[in-house]
Design a binder for these strands. Structure first.
Length: 468
RNA sequence: GCUCCCAUCGUCUAGAGGCCCAGGACACAGCCCUCUCAAGGCUGGUACGAGGGUUCGAAUCCCUCUGGGAGCGCCA
């Protein structure tokens, strides 16, 4: 039997980190076993579903590279099918019409709570023979009173529920539209899903779904309930941290593989290994190795993981992600070779592409002014001669390449009788405006002869200037 | 309240009875490397929630408690 998994988000909220990890596990498991990954959009709640949320799901999955083999299927397009199963259940006596009003149900629940019982529908409409005039009934699934339901979960092991704990849930609203738990059952059955991988907040829904599956006369799929992801403070994910659209991580400069690696390591591990390529994860992943307990997001480690992937990436690949970040800063990033050169030079000094772009502004725009402290220390009467010497030596260079530039700077240091730092740092401030940049030779090579010399001249003027 | 789930450093985790007076990673501190910032290397501190069992032996098995979480919708 070939493996078939599905990721079934609801477009009522943004696709966030938690959903992405569930999607990753579903995808990984399908890929690992040469199976099929199905994408299904659970949009039966038309009131709350939004096009924006749907867009975020589709865009997010695409950005991450979690490609699906089937779908996206939309539940709203399957209404006829749900109606058919409901009719079947009704005809077979496996479901019945319920005419209870919301007020009546609220009262029932309140009374049960007062008696310290679990609030549940008491089945009072089960034996009703005649319809109640003027009331559009809901349809309830008739849950077996006796027996037990065992959810055989590959992560948690067997979980047993008494059937008596389950009540007759509504499968069709009074307007005739089907509800979530019912649609899931019909879909998973129709789509021949073999492994249901989802958040553990669904554990309590599972026995009801199994009962409906039994009513349909089919064997339940394998279940794997993955633990929740919490915010950095250990509390439930909120807007403040993490519960934002996955696209925000893209905009923040995360690499898909970096984010996926971090997320995969939340709840799953392979010995002591921290870094995985997507291919590696696919090869090593097993849903049964997933942890049972919830895990908190650690922004520092998320950043570190991304940085490690930047470190292992190629300049060309980084350039593709760096370009939009530069453009977002209003810079001209049309020179692809230059962007790649910058990416290569900055590769080991940025945790995100956004950070990389922010640190690379001087490569793409004139240095307007110097950081005051940096200028005071490095562009003054004392360093003026050094700057002049550098300027002269560089201007005489034939090949504007890092090795030659390096030698030139070394030579100036020797001739001035100072350490390399005493020469490199003033140059750095002169060409970048600040104290931080890639190695000076690499920086100058990327900047080019013309730009470098012009900035050195300007710095020399500043160093000699009366303004100081 | 009822049902279900969970429990190793601050955080992510290794650990499936002796290899563990608990290992790795992030973060933190110090040192090294060094033209800045990084990257990298080395060193350091901090954890098996509590109590009972089982066993020659328990982080690992069982029970209770405590703590956290989820569900109990004509939401998904």
């Amino acid at each position: 039997m070939t493996v078939r998994t599905r990721f079934a988000p609801s477009p009522t909220g943004m696709l966030h980190i938690g959903g992405v990890r569930t999607a990753l596990f579903c995808w990984l498991y399908a890929r690992r076993h040469g199976g099929t990954f199905v994408l299904r959009i659970e949009d039966t709640d038309r009131e709350r579903s939004t096009p924006e949320a749907l867009h975020a799901i589709l865009e997010g999955m695409k950005w991450l590279g979690l490609d699906h083999d089937e779908g996206p299927y939309y539940q709203t397009a399957r209404m006829d099918r749900y109606a058919e199963v409901i009719r079947q259940f009704l005809a077979e006596g496996k479901a019945y019409h319920c005419y209870c009003s919301k007020e009546e149900l609220d009262e029932m629940r309140a009374a049960q709570m007062a008696r310290k019982e679990k609030p549940r529908y008491d089945g009072r409409c089960r034996h009703r023979t005649a319809p109640l005039q003027g009331v559009n009934p809901v349809v309830r699934f008739r849950n077996p009173d006796e027996g037990q339901v065992v959810v055989d979960d590959v992560i948690h092991g067997p979980i047993t529920f008494d059937s008596s704990e389950l009540d007759d849930l509504i499968i069709a609203r009074s307007d005739g539209t089907p509800t979530y738990n019912f649609c899931v059952v019909v879909d998973d059955y129709d789509m021949r899903i073999t492994h249901v991988i989802r958040g553990d907040d669904h554990i309590n829904n599972t026995p009801r779904q199994i009962q409906m599956l039994r009513a349909l006369g089919v064997e339940p799929p394998v279940y794997a309930h993955v633990p929740m992801i919490l915010g950095p403070d250990g509390a439930k994910l909120s807007k403040r941290h993490g519960a934002v659209s996955v696209l925000q991580y893209r905009d923040e400069g995360f690499l898909p593989e970096g984010l996926l690696n971090y997320l995969g390591r939340l709840g799953w591990s392979y010995g002591d290994q921290e870094l995985f390529s997507l291919e590696e994860m696919t090869r090593l992943f097993d849903i049964g190795d997933v942890n049972k307990s919830a895990s908190a997001l650690n922004p520092d480690k998320m950043l570190w993981t991304n940085q490690q992937h930047i470190l292992r990436s190629t300049p060309d690949r980084l350039a593709a992600y760096l370009r939009p970040q530069l453009e977002a800063l209003g810079l001209d990033a049309t020179d692809g070779a230059k962007v790649a050169a910058v990416a290569k030079a900055q590769q080991e000094r940025a945790r995100t592409l956004k950070e990389m772009a922010a640190n690379s502004v001087f490569f793409f725009r004139e240095v307007e002014d110097y950081e005051p402290k940096a200028a005071a220390k490095n562009l003054n009467a004392e360093t003026a001669p050094v700057l002049a010497a550098v300027r002269a030596r560089l201007a005489a260079l034939d090949a504007w390449r890092a090795p030659a530039l390096h030698e030139a700077v070394m030579a100036v240091a020797a001739e001035q009788g100072v350490g390399l730092g005493k020469v490199a740092q003033p140059i750095r401030v002169a060409v970048s405006g600040g104290t931080v940049s890639p190695p000076i030779d690499v920086t100058l090579e990327i900047l080019g002869r013309e730009t470098t010399l012009a900035r050195l001249d300007r710095a020399a003027a500043f160093a000699a200037g009366p303004a100081r």
